[in-house]
Amino acid sequence: MNPPVYTPTDQAPADPGATDDMPATRPVGYRSGLVHAAVTRHLRDAMARIDVAQPQYWVLNRVNGGAAGARAVVREGTDDEEYVAALEVLRGMPADVERDGDS
């Protein structure tokens, strides 16, 4: 087996001058990382309040029929159409990145 080959990439820093009215210039990796951290923290805090660990929560979630309360907080202020659109975009990004890596 050959060791992995390191290939440096040309990484441009995020534009520090980007403003809120320029959403297309915002770095998706940074933003998705913030979302991941916030949602994970919220779910862990919710589990801690009822004194369960994640595997126990999965079982309770299945037995109870869902974790509507925790999901409702994460989706607060976002209607179904916006939520689905965001998920579709996020779902497609890994495939775009992998496809680009093949070129």
Score class of each variant (00 low, 15 high):
residue 1 M to S: 09
residue 69 G to Y: 06
residue 7 T to D: 04
residue 23 P to Y: 06
residue 17 G to V: 00
residue 49 R to W: 02
residue 86 A to H: 02
residue 81 E to M: 05
residue 83 Y to H: 06
residue 58 W to V: 14
residue 44 R to F: 06
residue 3 P to C: 04
residue 83 Y to N: 07
residue 5 V to S: 09
residue 12 A to H: 11
residue 100 D to M: 12
residue 18 A to H: 07
residue 10 D to M: 06
residue 10 D to L: 14
residue 15 D to T: 09
residue 42 H to P: 01
residue 98 E to C: 02
residue 99 R to W: 04
residue 54 Q to M: 11
residue 61 N to Q: 14
residue 56 Q to E: 15
residue 79 D to F: 06
residue 54 Q to F: 12
residue 2 N to E: 10
residue 100 D to T: 09
residue 75 R to Q: 13
residue 98 E to Q: 12
residue 18 A to R: 14
residue 28 V to T: 11
residue 75 R to H: 04
residue 12 A to V: 12
residue 31 R to H: 13
residue 99 R to I: 00
residue 15 D to P: 03
residue 3 P to G: 01
residue 65 G to P: 03
residue 67 A to E: 03
residue 6 Y to I: 13
residue 95 A to M: 10
residue 62 R to Y: 00
residue 19 T to K: 13
residue 14 A to Y: 04
residue 11 Q to D: 07
residue 31 R to V: 09
residue 91 R to H: 11
residue 100 D to H: 11
residue 49 R to V: 03
residue 52 V to Q: 03
residue 5 V to N: 01
residue 11 Q to R: 12
residue 27 P to E: 13
residue 67 A to D: 05
residue 33 G to N: 05
residue 64 N to D: 06
residue 52 V to K: 03
residue 52 V to H: 02
residue 43 L to H: 03
residue 97 V to F: 08
residue 49 R to H: 13
residue 41 R to G: 11
residue 4 P to S: 06
residue 42 H to L: 15
residue 55 P to G: 04
residue 46 A to K: 08
residue 29 G to D: 09
residue 92 G to A: 09
residue 103 S to A: 11
residue 66 G to H: 01
residue 100 D to I: 02
residue 49 R to N: 10
residue 81 E to P: 00
residue 25 T to L: 15
residue 95 A to C: 00
